[in-house]
Design a protein around this nucleic acid. Structure first.
Length: 118
DNA sequence: CTGCTGACTGGTA
DNA sequence: GTACCAGCCAGCA
């Protein structure tokens, strides 16, 4: 494995069963970096490996996420796997979501927005 | 080594 | 419902 993190991410994505989807956060959690959802996305960006079903990796809350034309590609592939996909989201997300394991509550990234500068 | 970027996420306005 | 903000992490210049 060239870079541990990347290899783990690819392996996790590859382990997603057909007809199921996982969020970047889920993948990050699987690789041992619950906060590295961003980094996971970065790894996907360079996924030139067809064996990696990057289309099964979606954003939180069942959002398609993705980028550019791949967004439509993902929607197409997901629909081909029997998923109900809208223009921007996956329906029955909780049902097709994978894996089915509890995630620890995050620290409140609740950032009370300060008053905007005048 | 330092700094910026980005297929992200959760929360407030 | 949408828009914006702040936090987080790995990769790259």
């Amino acid at each position: 494995m060239p870079t541990g993190f990347r290899a783990r991410v690819l392996a996790a994505v590859r382990s997603i069963p057909r007809g199921r989807v996982a969020t970047y956060g889920d993948i990050a959690d699987l690789v041992g970096a619950p906060r590295a959802a961003r980094a996971v996305g970065n790894v996907m960006r360079g996924c030139g490996d067809p064996s990696v079903p990057c289309h099964r990796v979606i954003a939180s809350a069942g959002g398609i996420g993705g980028f550019g034309g791949y967004l439509e590609r993902k929607r197409q592939l997901l629909r081909a796997e029997g998923l109900d996909v809208t223009a921007t989201r996956v329906r029955h997300f909780a049902t097709v979501r994978w894996p089915v394991q509890p995630r620890r509550p995050r620290r409140g990234t609740a950032t009370p927005r300060r008053q905007r500068p005048v």
